[in-house]
Write a protein that binds this DNA or RNA. Structure first.
Lengths: 174, 174
DNA sequence: CAGAGATAATTGATACGTCAACAAAACTTA
DNA sequence: TAAGTTTTGTTGACGTATCAATTATCTCTG
């Protein structure tokens, strides 16, 4: 950056940015609290349970899960260890590729996600969707992918540059 | 919850929810990376520096900052300790209320936030505002406060139930 | 003014995310 | 098939967020 070519935010933009920042912090934080209180887990753990449970009978490799959630492998590895310790998942070595593993939900894992889902979905509906009219929903649906796309380009070269959704595509059901 | 009165998400809603979740994770995460790489700090630290620097010459108490940012006091306390260790802020006990403190930016703090601002604002503009057309901006501006309001009600009784912006209101400049 | 309660801020334990370094297995290609 | 490269997944160190408990000060009420 030579001189000062920074395109600073207008007052309007600053206001909106503050609202967005607050949303970016408050929403995940409240969601964590909801899951902690109602189901003794946090967003990350729920995301993994939900991702795996979407295709009953399927077993995923960590890499699939990481890609579906757009997560760092390391983060997932740490979390899977904790979840295995809690008895929520089981791992079996992948016979086709012995670097990898097959991750499955245990009975306890299934029970846990089934019990957690209603109150969590209720939270998401009441905090989010009930506050959106049709127009606002459409706007989000058109705006956010553009932002995610920009972020993806920004990240190019970094952690997760995969082009996604192979996990969903390979799901036998749905 | 008696029977199963859960209002599950429709397929459309599930799609949107996935996009939102991704945004909620990817954006802050990329922003942290931007600040770390360009300015050796994270979002929290930048937020505090920016909040304090908004009213030059003013000194804030931690409680003011916590309220303006809608943060937990404990989180702020830990962060202020680290920032003081780095030499970014200074604390002086408040003569009017000796429970409290006066927090000010040091010269290094000022220099740091001035140097960090351009690339950070550029990130926010390029990743966020450049992807929003006018209509989408308006939609966010109308939707997010409703969501924040719902979250506020959800939190009622928890950490931060204050009704905000006393810090901004008391700002001599602007 | 005494005591009860509220408020400001800190602290320590714990859990989680990130990063860089690593090990093992699988591809690639010459 | 051997050497180099990529991919899969783990590990440990470190920074940060959260929660409950604690201290110090202030305010209110009788």
């Amino acid at each position: 950056m030579s001189a000062d070519e920074t395109r600073w935010l207008s007052e309007n933009e600053q206001e909106l940015w503050q609202i967005i920042r607050e949303f970016l912090w408050q929403f995940p934080s409240a969601m964590d609290r909801q899951l902690t209180q109602d189901s003794n887990m946090q967003t990350g753990e729920y995301s993994v349970l939900a991702a795996i449970s979407e295709c009953p009978g399927t077993s995923y490799r960590p890499a699939d899960i990481a890609e579906a959630l757009r997560w760092d492998r390391s983060r997932l590895s740490h979390l899977l260890r904790r979840m295995e310790a809690k008895g929520l998942i089981s791992r079996h070595s992948d016979e086709n590729d012995r670097r990898g593993q097959q991750i499955q939900l245990t009975d306890l894992g299934w029970q846990t996600v089934r019990e957690a889902a209603p109150s969590h979905v209720t939270f998401v509906r009441e905090m989010l969707f009930d506050s959106l009219n049709e127009e606002e929903g459409k706007a989000l649906r058109s705006a956010l992918p553009k932002i995610l796309d920009a972020l993806g380009k920004y990240n190019a070269g970094a952690t997760c540059k995969a082009d996604a959704s192979e996990m969903a595509a390979s799901c036998p059901n749905s």
